Computed example of a mutant assay.
Amino acid sequence: MLFNPLDRGQLVTQLHDIGLHAGDLVMVHTSLRAIGAIAGGPQTLLDALLEVLGAHGTLAAYVSWKHSSYDATLDGRTLSARERARWPLFDPSAAAPHEGFGYFNQFVCRHPAVHRSAHPTANIAAIGCRAAELTADHSLLDGYAPGSPLGRIVAAPGRVLMLGAPPGSLTVLHLAQAIARIPGKRRVRYEVPLLIDGERCWRQAEEFDTNGLLDQFVDNGFDDIAAIATDYVLEERGRRGRVGRANCWLFDAQDLVSFGVSWLERRFG
């Protein structure tokens, strides 16, 4: 079955239908492939989202960094002096987003009014009236903690919009991992390259292990984020709709994180 490319007006209507409102603060996860053809491409989708949110709304996205040093320096892994000297420095005003989190994020990061947080790996990009507030003072010692951009999105209170993206991409649930009261949570340490007072510096970052919060998760490849998100949807929480060909969900961020904390504590607390 053939579909005509979506135009901006159709996208605006479908975003309204799913429950997105002017003035919302929303974190967006996007699969362009799931949505299908858009006239004008991803820029049209971004324009439609910003039109719906209006002058008092804010759009946020988890973008990370294409040249993340996480894997190369994780938990004591070392780089040679030459590798350290050649590794690109993280500059939030120009850093390319990580390709693994969606092509749409490139358009978010190129927007002339975008603000980005100073954490290379947990980097958040935001556009709108609260963008500067959301992205300020992003500590290297807790990328996903209550004081991080994720914590501010939840506290706002904000919403999370899944435009065809899979359940495992719900980044806001990293906050649930950070605050859930369960024993034995794993922490990881790694180094990040920054420009500080005009000098190249490597600084240590530290956070709960978002890829394997407990040892038993690492042993069997368990994805707690995807499991929490799946159970949340099965309880018919949030609003469901379609944008283009994609099945989409709009969630209340506070309710989602509260559910995630309870889910983790019931099973592992």
Score class of each variant (00 low, 15 high):
Gly128Thr: 01
Cys129Lys: 00
Cys129Val: 14
Cys129Asp: 15
Ala131Phe: 04
Ala132Glu: 12
Ala132Trp: 08
Ala132Ser: 12
Ala132Asn: 11
Ala132His: 10
Ala132Pro: 06
Glu133Thr: 04
Glu133Cys: 05
Glu133Asn: 09
Leu134Tyr: 02
Thr135Glu: 07
Thr135Met: 10
Ala136Tyr: 13
Asp137His: 14
Asp137Ala: 14
Ser139Ala: 14
Ser139Met: 12
Ser139Leu: 05
Leu140His: 08
Leu140Trp: 06
Leu140Glu: 01
Leu141Ala: 15
Gly143Val: 00
Gly143Ile: 02
Tyr144Met: 07
Tyr144Lys: 04
Ala145His: 04
Ala145Leu: 06
Pro146Ala: 09
Gly147Tyr: 07
Gly147Asn: 10
Ser148Thr: 04
Pro149Asn: 11
Pro149Arg: 02
Leu150Thr: 05
Leu150Gly: 02
Leu150Pro: 00
Leu150Gln: 04
Leu150Phe: 08
Leu150Met: 14
Leu150Arg: 00
Gly151Ala: 13
Gly151Gln: 03
Gly151Ser: 10
Arg152Glu: 12
Ile153Val: 09
Ile153Asp: 06
Val154Met: 05
Val154Ile: 13
Ala155Leu: 09
Ala155Arg: 01
Ala155Trp: 02
Ala156Phe: 14
Gly158His: 03
Gly158Asn: 04
Gly158Tyr: 02
Arg159Ile: 08
Arg159Glu: 13
Val160Pro: 00
Val160Ala: 08
Val160Cys: 12
Val160Gln: 03
Val160Trp: 03
Leu161Thr: 00
Leu161Val: 03
Leu161His: 03
Met162Thr: 02
Leu163Phe: 09
Leu163Lys: 01
Gly164Phe: 08
Ala165Trp: 06
Pro166Ile: 07
Pro167Ala: 12
Pro167Met: 08
Pro167Thr: 03
Pro167Tyr: 05
Gly168Lys: 10
Gly168Tyr: 07
Gly168Gln: 08
Ser169Asp: 11
Leu170Met: 14
Leu170Asn: 04
Val172Cys: 09
Val172Gly: 05
Val172Lys: 00
His174Pro: 07
His174Glu: 12
Leu175Val: 05
Leu175Cys: 08
Leu175Ile: 05
Leu175Lys: 00
Ala176Tyr: 01
Gln177Lys: 07
Ala178Thr: 04
Ala178Cys: 11
Ala178Trp: 03
Ile179Pro: 00
Ile179Arg: 06
Ile179Glu: 03
Ala180Arg: 00
Ala180Met: 05
Ala180Tyr: 01
Arg181Gln: 14
Arg181Gly: 11
Ile182Tyr: 06
Ile182Lys: 01
Ile182Asp: 14
Pro183Leu: 06
Gly184Val: 02
Lys185Ala: 12
Lys185Leu: 08
Lys185Val: 09
Lys185Trp: 12
Arg186Gly: 06
Arg186Thr: 06
Arg186Cys: 12
Arg187Asn: 10
Arg187Lys: 13
Arg187Phe: 10
Val188Gly: 07
Tyr190Phe: 15
Tyr190Glu: 02
Tyr190Thr: 06
Tyr190Leu: 09
Tyr190Ser: 04
Glu191Pro: 05
Glu191Asp: 14
Val192Ile: 09
Val192His: 01
Pro193Gln: 06
Leu194Trp: 04
Leu194Pro: 01
Leu194Cys: 11
Leu195Ile: 11
Ile196Cys: 10
Ile196Ser: 11
Ile196Asp: 02
Ile196Lys: 15
Asp197Cys: 15
Gly198Tyr: 15
Gly198Ile: 06
Gly198Asp: 02
Gly198Met: 12
Gly198Trp: 10
Glu199Pro: 15
Glu199Asn: 15
Glu199Ala: 14
